[in-house]
Design a protein around this nucleic acid. Structure first.
Length: 552
RNA sequence: GCGCCCGUAGCUCAGCUGGAUAGAGCGUCUGACUACGGAUCAGAAGGUCGCAGGUUCGAAUCCUGUCGGGCGCACCA
């Protein structure tokens, strides 16, 4: 019996009590019973506070209501004991056989254990990273890459119809600055003030010269155009490759230029977006510029869409991009933004409302910035740490795991030396080692003739077994919450707890009998428990984009 | 000035959207290997959950205020 099944039984009992008139009718209105694993094992295998939550509405004392539930609950098959404790908790102890019965279910579910269809329905768009193609990906992007990809995996695991998307800012003045920076390097000059000083620009220039020697002698406008397009192509390809190495893939690479080019109707997507918003009555002209009245929707100030010089702003492109997404059928659009962009939330939500949509369908997830060993990194400061270098230095597993194990809204420090260590300090190795151990145990079991045939859950009675099973059973709840809240760190933290439970069990219970001791049902049963743990480690690690090595 | 995020063990951080005696790792101290990998396990010490009010059976969690730290407030992208 799983806690979910237990919760259903308790719900049934409440409804029956209400129906039979032995308890107040309001209890028929209970729709959900939450069952938790108590911290203190003296409080049973599972506990619920439902009696305390509903006692006042039912006009009963919490302990009386709890007792009313406890009585029929004791008669349920698989339940060993039910106790009313403290102010009105219901503490439930299950039979070992009933607890362990979940093991074959986990194995039967295979890679789908923990998956659901909870988020099935409206298509969701998730945009993240979206770094400018004018330079390599750096530390500031790594967190969103890891987090965004893990969120994507979680949402899909929960049944979401999800599209991941990378918005390429390949339009506007920074592309000209980029081109000009490269061109200076092509000519062997230093870059000008305000241009990109990085060494990577020199390398881009060298590659462009190698492939297009004529760039040196072309008239400046043509040479600049060549530098821009070739630099763009090379840099984007490199960033894409780096992300792939980081196990981050996108379904859609969306070019900002698409929003500026005129279509068959002679209008650009931006112009169409402005026209649409104007129809809604939220656009006005002032001081030679075109404005969106975002203050109607709680923004601090109205925003310019077309500047006085006729150029559309970045904000206008944002609006057009948003409308493009909606036009592609997405009901929910999620943006992963750094803390330094949180000022955008108000205006983005204003766009959604001005377009006539529910602002709650435009979700902004804000993450705090990352530092390395205390030193904050930003592109402007010139001190750039590239994602590619980080991967090489720490390995993609350690890096992805570390970035995934903290909630997005906590500041995060990359402790490089710790991440390079292959010890208990480093949680990714702790978890991966536990997985490797499951594989190792299975290998020894196979050699010794422990097959798993004759599985009998009632033999799994050791406290460490009971704890390990209880942990495995909680996995679907963890993935469900992690997906609903878009919080992959829950999975990582769970895996660390699972690893601790697994190591404790390994320390206490042998799958392969010692020496000449006979193979008994308990050994076969333990082998399947071991396999169930292996499954959950593998599934969980995959959800955060970390490998599950069989040997380390 | 306005807005968002964060203040939990010596350090780095969890705390399942209100539950029972606030947890983990590291660090410190003490133990466990002729047996499935010791990259492991057992135990000890370590706390005014920034501070002050409020909500209620019950608050680290929710509300208000306050102090401290980070970030943001463009006809830039």
């Amino acid at each position: 019996m799983t806690p979910t099944q237990l919760a259903e039984r308790i719900l049934d009992i409440l409804h029956q009590l209400a129906e039979a008139g032995t308890a107040p009718g309001v209890l028929a209105g209970v729709t959900q019973v939450r069952v938790d694993r108590p911290k203190d094992r003296a409080h049973g295998d599972w506990a619920t506070n439902v009696a305390m939550q509903w006692a006042s509405r039912a006009g009963m004392r919490p302990r009386d209501l709890a007792e009313a539930i406890a009585e029929p609950l004791r008669a349920v098959d698989g339940i060993q004991a039910v106790e009313v404790a403290g102010p009105g908790f219901l503490n439930v102890v299950l039979d070992a056989a009933a607890s362990g019965a979940v093991i074959p279910d986990i194995l039967a579910a295979g890679d789908r254990y923990g998956a659901s269809d909870a988020l099935a329905g409206t298509p969701i768009d998730l945009e993240f990273v979206s770094a400018n193609p004018t330079g390599p990906l750096h530390l500031g992007h790594t967190r969103w890459a890891a987090l965004g990809d893990s969120i994507a995996r979680l949402l899909r695991f929960a049944g979401a119809d999800l599209t991941t998307e990378y918005y390429i800012n390949d339009f506007g003045s920074q592309m000209d600055t980029f081109a000009s920076s490269i061109y200076h390097r092509v000519l062997g000059e230093d870059v000008a003030e305000g241009e990109y000083p990085g060494e990577y620009v020199v390398q881009l220039a060298q590659r462009i010269v190698a492939e297009h020697p004529e760039v040196r002698t072309l008239p400046a406008p043509e040479a600049l155009a060549l530098c821009k397009e070739e630099g763009y192509r090379l840099q984007l390809a490199e960033n894409r490759e780096t992300l792939a190495r980081f196990r981050v893939e996108f379904d859609v690479w969306f070019s900002e230029r698409r929003l500026h080019t005129t279509g068959a109707d002679g209008q650009s997507a931006i112009q169409r977006a402005i026209a649409h918003l104007r129809d809604q009555g939220h656009v006005y002209d002032k001081d030679g510029a075109v404005w969106l009245r975002t203050t109607t929707f709680g923004d601090d100030k109205d925003r310019v869409m077309i500047r006085a010089d006729g150029e559309p702003t970045y904000f206008a492109a944002d609006a057009a991009y948003y409308l493009d997404k909606r036009g592609r059928g997405f009901g929910e659009t999620i943006y992963l933004l750094g803390a330094d962009h949180h000022g955008y939330i108000g205006r983005l939500k204003a766009i959604a409302q001005a377009a006539g949509n529910d602002p709650d369908e435009l979700v902004c997830l804000i993450g705090q910035l990352v530092s390395v060993d205390g030193a904050k990194m930003s592109k402007r400061a010139g001190h750039i740490i590239e994602l590619g270098d980080l991967i090489e230095w720490l390995g993609e597993d350690a890096l992805r795991y570390w970035l995934a194990r903290y909630p997005a809204d906590t500041p995060l420090a990359l402790e490089g030396e710790k991440l390079r260590r292959r010890t208990n300090d480093n949680p990714v190795f702790y978890v991966q080692y536990a997985h490797a151990r499951t594989v190792n145990v299975a290998r020894h079991a196979a050699e010794a003739g422990v097959t798993g045939d004759g599985f009998d859950a009632s033999t799994l009675t050791h406290p460490t077994e009971e704890a390990l099973i209880a942990r495995l059973v909680q996995f679907p709840d963890v993935t469900g919450h992690a997906a609903a809240l878009r919080e992959p760190h829950r999975v990582a933290r769970y895996l660390e707890q699972l690893a601790a439970d697994y190591h404790r069990w390994y320390d206490q219970c042998r799958v392969v009998p010692l020496g000449e001791a006979p193979i008994e049902a308990v050994h076969h049963s333990r082998l399947l428990l071991n396999e169930a743990a292996e499954h959950v480690f593998r599934i969980g690690l995959d959800l955060i984009g970390v490998s599950a090595p069989e040997r380390m």
